[in-house]
Each structure stands twice: as C-alpha cells, then as structure tokens.
Design a protein around this nucleic acid. Structure first.
Length: 749
RNA sequence: GAGUGGUUAACUCAAUUGGUAGAGUGUUUCGCUUACAACGAAACGGUUAGUGGUUCGAGUCCGCUACUACUUACCA
C-alpha cells in the first residue's frame, strides 16, 4: 500500500476522532497467557467433541437471609471476579431473590442478584455467576446492568491482588482452580463436582487454554454514521444483485454493532494515538509525533513534555479500516488539496478523476464480505464524498468443490487454473465457470462444465472452417435468402433477451441464450440450410450475408470467449491489426418480425416430426421420402417448401385433404403428416393403433382440464384476457388433434 | 442459540409482476450423412421436501414440520 493511501487512512481516523465517532472502550479478546499475545478468532482452535472438565456447584450466602443460592461454574478461580449473580426473571425458583445481595465466597463482597433473560432455566442450577472481566457473555450482562468489572487475572495467567485473597495472588489460574476447590470443600461450600464436556478454545500457537480477557480497544460508533448507507440500499439507490442480500444487509444494518478497529498485529496502520500519562484521557490523536507533542503539551498543561514522554499506541488498524476508503482513496481523494480537513469532506470539483469516475457503476465481490467491506465503503462514501460509491453490487457465488467445501489454498482442493487452461483452453474454462454462475449462488466446480466450454469453442471453430472454405459464384438463392432473413430476425430476438439478462446481471442466462443461438439456430439450421451440395460453390449473396451473421455472433460471444472470438474475427475477413472484436461496436437491437420466427417454428417442428418418424420406423436419414400434408393452412409450408425438403430430406411435399392409407402417419402441431410407403415396409398396425390410442387419451384428458377451467365462471371473469385466449387456443388445438387422431385410428381399420 | 437463504428431472442449476415447470450434463435408441464422432438426429425423464391455508389459478404468497447452507455468537 502506498504512502498516500496510508496517510488517507490516518487522516480519516483523526477526522472521525474529532467528529466524535471514535472512542475507546472495552472488548473481550482471546488472550494467550503463555505467548502473552492476543489471538484472532481464527487462531483459536476448538477440539472436536469438546474436552473433559468439571462443573462445580458452589453455595453462596445471601445477605440478611438464611437462604442460599447455588451457582454452577467450570472456572471457580474466577469467583473472586464475580460482580453479580443472575437468574432468569421468569424462574419461579429464584425470582424472589432478585434485588437481594449475595456474598462472594471467601471474600464476602456483596454482589447484586439480578434478573436477565440470558440465563437458561434448565442449565446448571439456573443461577449464573457473572464475571464481566473474564467472559464475553458476562461482559454483555454487565453492560446491561451496569456492573463493576474486576479483572483478577494478569497477562501471564496468574492471579492479581484484586482477587483479595493474599494466598492466591501470583499463582497460576489452574493451580488456583485446584486450590480453590479444596478450600471450597473445606468450607463446605462445594455442593457438587461432576464431569462435564466443554468446548474450550486453545491457542493455535502454544496450545494453552485461551483466556477471555477484557482490554481497552478503539471503536467507531456506527449508529449515526451508517444511517445513510442503510437507507441507500433500502431505497434501491444502490442495488444488490441478487436482491436477496438486501434482507441480509438490512438485518445487519439495523443491528449494527460498533466497529472495533484496533488489532493486535505486527503489521498494519499503527493507530495515531499518543499517550503522555497513565490516566484514561492522557492521550492525543495526531498525524505525527511532532503534532502529538504540541497537542499533548496543551492537553496536559505540561510544557516540559518531550517526544520521549510520548508513547504511540502499539495496536494497528483493522485491515477494513483502510479498505473502506478504496473508492475515494484510489483517486487520491484524501490528498491535499482535495480533502478539507476542517469539514472532513472531499472538496467537490477539486479532483477531475474522482469526479469523473465516482460513483462507479458496479462492484463485483463475494457475499461473505458484504458487511466487512461493501457496507463500509458505502458508509465512507456518504461520509466523505456525500454520495454513494457505486450503483450496483454484484455478489458472485463462492466456488466449491464437489463435497461443497470452499476452494481454498489450505485445503488444496482448488485445481490449478493453468492446468485447466492447458486441458480446456482459456475460453473453455472461462465459459465453463460462467455456465453455472447465477449471481450470489454458490458454484459447484465440475470439470465437465469446462469440457462443455471447450466443445463450444470447437463448435465455433468448425462452423467458421466450413463457411470459410466455401467457394462462391455470383448469384443468389431464394431459399437461402429465407433462411438468412429468419436468422436475422431470430438474432435480434436473442439479442433482446441477452440485453435483458445483462441488465439484470444474469450472466449465465445471457450465455445460455447465446449458446443456444449458436448450436440450434446457427449450426443446426442456418448452416445446414444454406449448405450447397457437396463440393459445390455457394452464391455470393448468401455467403456475404453469412459472413455478416458470423461477425455479429462473434460480437455476442466475445465477452464470454474473448480469445477464440478475436481469433475468428481476424480470420473471417482481412482486417487491420487494430480492427478487433474487443473494440467493435456491440450490435444494436433491431426490430424483429415475430411472425417469421413463429412460422419458422412450424417449419422446425415439421422437420423434427419427420426425423422422428424416420427414427421410430428405422428409415435411414438420407433416404428421400414423399410427404403428404393435411393441413388447414398450407401457406407456411408453401413458402418454406424448399428448406423443409432439404432439412427433412424429402423428395416432394404434397398437400391432401384426406387420410392417406398405407402410410406412416404422424402429427406436427395440428397438421397431419403422411409418408406413403410401398409394400416393402410393413406397418405394425396394432402397435401403431395402441400408440395413437394412448395419445388420444392424453389429449382428451388435457382437453377436459382446459374445458373445466373455461367452464369456471370465476376464471373467465378474473383471469386476464391473454390467459383466457391461451386457454381457448389450447382448446382448439386439442380438439383438432383429437379429430385427427380419431381419423387416423379409423383409417387403420 | 439467533439471523438469513435454500430444498424443482439421476446430477448441477433456471423459471423476472402468481397463468399451468425449462436448460446443460448424464442415460437410451439410431446414425461415421457432405464443417464438426471432441459429432449429428431423436427419445425417456418432474405429485416442484412434507403439510395446511389464501386464490378462478401457487414452484412462486402466508403458516407449521423436516432437512441443509451461510453469517454471527456459543452456553455458565
């Protein structure tokens, strides 16, 4: 991190201190008594299944009463630090004691008996000793009830004089535990001692039991400073993708806790606080030691202070206390002359770069740092720039292995990307990942997806190779023109879909639309339809149009497959070196004719039906067949007759108005199709009939359900026109199909 | 414990304001047909976890149950 960034972090600390957001407060930390160091949560290890320990029940006398309370504890050595006994206020056994005073064993200090919901009714004795200095939960109870904090344990794990028992002072806490159990027993205060499995933390470094310990830390008061950041997301001023994270964000911001920004680490931004005495307020906050000295002289009233009398805080700042300034600091927003230290704001109009880029469009990051980083950047953005730092936040999924474990270096379950790239190609790996990355959902990594990506690039390559090797002749072809027309309409339809997906950050969906455009529309239909006979040239009009289409498709693919699309872009046509697809203009959506696309669906349905009929009858795919159609509207089939014949390998298409006997019959939509066959192939009429009967029953059932719905007065009244119309169409289709099937069955005899 | 998601085909996931569930992979059948067998053509495959409710209509909204993931605390 560079010097300017460092200065920015310090400046912000000082600014927040002056604004009154920063304060010093107590916080429970994990303390390793042997290494004499604080540990982060990650450095504390919990043994699986817990550890063997004892739970001791101890009698405590109640002042001015013959009654006693029995408390349960695993750590009797902390008894002298107790400052209250808590019971659940709804506990019938104990609630009458609330408000009385109990006496701490041995030292007879008076402590209050309080009521707190935290206490479980059915754990231990129902009475909880509260030791705010040595237990995180007790500390919180102490906060709620304003309890005294008595820290009886030294940094090295020995007891100090605050425990008030001279024999205990200076001895290790675990020695004292044994000793105190003896002493309690001798004093007849020990009621019970039973084995207990506990989950205690041990230091990763020294394996000693971690001691929860209160220590003075630096905090940012989050309540006021985070208000705008909370609101901005709730009001959709900043959009989270997927939006489900809005709930999570809301919950966190509503219950925002003060941010402890000091850390006990050996590296980081050192806290710019300088102490000149032992008192609670004997410190100053300043950017440098020199400034600190001046301030300290003033604050202490001691003009004789020297630099040696000042001691800078040993702690450093939490790493997020620097990262949260990233959107501004990256443009030197906190550097002179852009930052006004008096107002604590970035001066509007003083920084061209910042003005231009801020707020940025989209932040892409992981959901696990939504609060650590994202929320805090938003807070800092409003605090220092007076505006949101970005408009959208795209939260990616976390890549997991097949056992749903997070991919991580320490587990070693992350595949080497270079190996993957070697195997599947960079585009293949990239596309593979994108196939399955719905925003915010975890992604189970599977090499099969990379393989699919690889195959996709091979498909593109082969399609290109085919187009490129074609020889051309001057001329045109009416059927090809129909195909080109259709594809261009279809292209715009897909482009519209893709744009919609992109606008909603649905990257996998956008990719899937393009993938299908390439496989289904471009490769399976367009290329097959314009394909000239073997080794024959193609007419130039069609060729040129196809090249244009290919170029458009490359543009669409480029964000997903940057390498192969660029390569093909340069191979498909002679170009200057700087004429690259990456800087080419993204295709603009043009109007598309829905009717043409629908017509074409009828065509592909028919082609599929013929292929299907061949398949089921075991007729070879390249044996030309005669097709007879019995349909109400033959215009579409007329128009596309040439293309249908080519795709379905037909020698002729004829129209008829009656059942054709001695033929393979099947339906395509509501159209009846017949392929007459000679005596060479015998049709198994019983099987055929059975199949038709089955279909007939299904159609009748379907019609029945549609009729039921349409017969429902409330449906007809309440449902939108569009939905009703759809139902009517279903009805008509089903009726037509039933009629046709019945006729077919009849014709079979 | 609390909070927030999730549970849809064999697997991985979609389904944008409630309008009758789609892809990919896998499987099966047929086919080396002229760019592609690292392929093509086609088929099979779902009481949307369970349960109750609201609605003409529920994968979608609400209640409960079970399981699961994440975040955060962890039991004197």
């Amino acid at each position: 991190m560079d010097d300017e960034y460092y200065k920015a972090v310090i400046k912000v600390f000082i600014d927040l201190y002056h604004k009154g957001y920063i304060y010093r407060g107590l916080r429970m930390i994990n303390w390793d008594c042997e290494a004499k160091t604080a540990l982060s949560n990650e450095e504390v290890i919990y043994r699986e299944g817990g550890e063997n320990s004892f739970l001791y029940s101890v009698k405590c006398a109640i002042k001015d009463s013959d009654e006693q309370v029995i408390i349960a504890t695993q750590r009797p050595e902390t008894i002298m630090g107790d400052t209250a006994i808590a019971v659940n206020p709804s506990d019938e056994r104990h609630k009458h004691l609330i408000g009385k005073k109990a006496l701490v064993p041995f030292i007879n200090r008076e402590i209050p008996i309080i009521g707190d919901d935290y206490v479980e009714l059915d754990f231990g004795t129902g009475c909880l000793k509260v030791t705010p200095a040595h237990d995180p939960n007790d500390y919180e109870i102490g906060q709620r009830h304003n309890l005294e904090v008595i820290d009886t344990i030294n940094l090295d794990g020995t007891l100090n004089e605050k425990c008030e028992v001279p024999e205990y002072v200076g001895r290790d806490r675990f020695d004292i535990r044994k000793q105190i159990v003896k002493d309690l027993r001798a004093a007849e205060l020990l009621v019970e001692e039973k084995p207990f499995i506990t989950r205690i933390g041990r230091s990763e470094r020294t394996n000693t039991v971690v001691e929860p310990k209160l220590s003075l830390q630096w905090f940012i008061n989050m309540k006021d400073i985070s208000r705008k950041a909370h609101q901005a997301v709730m009001d959709d001023e900043i959009l989270l993708y997927p939006s489900k994270f809005k709930n999570t964000y809301n919950h966190w911001m509503e219950n925002v806790r003060d941010w402890c920004i000091s850390r006990q680490l050996w590296w980081g931004h050192r806290i710019p606080a300088y102490y000149f005495g032992e008192g609670e307020n004997d410190f100053v906050v300043a950017a440098s030691a020199e400034e600190a000295l001046e301030l300290a002289k003033k604050k202490s009233g001691n003009a004789a202070l020297t630099a040696r009398d000042l001691k800078q805080d040993e702690d450093v700042l939490d790493t997020w206390a620097s990262s949260w300034l990233w959107p501004e600091a990256v443009f030197d927003g906190f550097k002179e002359p852009h930052f006004d230290e008096k107002t604590g704001k970035i001066i509007e109009g003083s920084n061209a770069e910042l003005d231009y880029f801020y707020p940025t469009d989209t932040l892409v990051t992981a959901p696990e740092i939504l609060f650590f980083w994202v929320a805090r950047m938003i807070i800092a953005g409003y605090e220092y720039k007076g505006e949101k730092p970005f408009k959208n936040v795209y939260l990616t999924g976390i890549v997991r292995d097949k056992q749903r474990r997070k991919m991580s270096k320490s587990l070693g379950n992350s595949p080497d990307p270079l190996d993957l790239i070697k195997q599947y190609g960079a585009d293949g790996v990239r596309t593979g990942m994108l196939f399955s990355s719905p925003a915010g959902n975890d992604l189970l990594f599977d090499e099969k997806l990379c393989d699919q990506g690889k195959k996709f690039s091979i498909k593109l390559w082969n399609a290109f190779r085919f187009i490129k090797q074609l020889k051309t002749f001057e001329g045109s072809n009416a059927d090809s023109q129909l195909a080109i027309d259709w594809f261009n309409n279809r292209f715009n339809q897909v482009l519209t879909e893709v744009e919609d997906h992109f606008s909603k950050f649905r990257l996998s969906d956008a990719l899937m639309s393009i993938y299908k455009l390439v496989y289904d529309d471009l490769a399976s239909y367009l290329i097959e339809m314009i394909k000239p006979a073997y080794e024959q040239p193609i007419d130039r009009t069609t060729y040129d149009a196809t090249i244009l289409i290919f170029e458009k498709v490359m543009k669409l693919i480029h964000p997903f497959m940057p390498f192969i699309s660029e390569e093909l872009w340069h191979k498909i046509r002679e170009r200057a070196d700087n004429d690259c697809v990456i800087v080419s203009e993204w295709p603009a959506i043009e109007n598309f004719d829905k009717e043409i696309i629908e017509e074409f669906e009828t065509v592909t349905n028919l082609v599929t039906a013929v292929r299907n009929a061949r398949n089921s009858k075991g007729i070879s795919g390249n044996e030309p067949l005669n097709l007879l159609l019995k349909c109400s509207d033959k215009s579409v089939f007329d128009k596309y007759q040439g293309l249908i014949s080519k795709m379905a390998v037909l020698s002729s298409i004829e129209f008829t108005d009656k059942i054709v006997p001695n033929s393979i019959s099947f339906m395509s939509g509501t159209n009846e199709c017949f392929i007459p066959i000679g005596d060479a192939v015998k049709i198994d009429t019983t099987e055929e009939k059975a199949n038709l009967q089955k279909d007939l029953e299904y159609q009748k059932g379907f019609l029945n359900s549609v009729m039921k719905k349409l017969g429902n007065e409330r449906f007809v009244q309440n449902a939108p026109e569009k939905v009703i119309e759809m139902e009517r169409k279903k009805q008509a289709d089903a009726e037509a199909k039933i009629k046709a099937i019945e006729a077919s069955i009849k014709s079979l005899g």
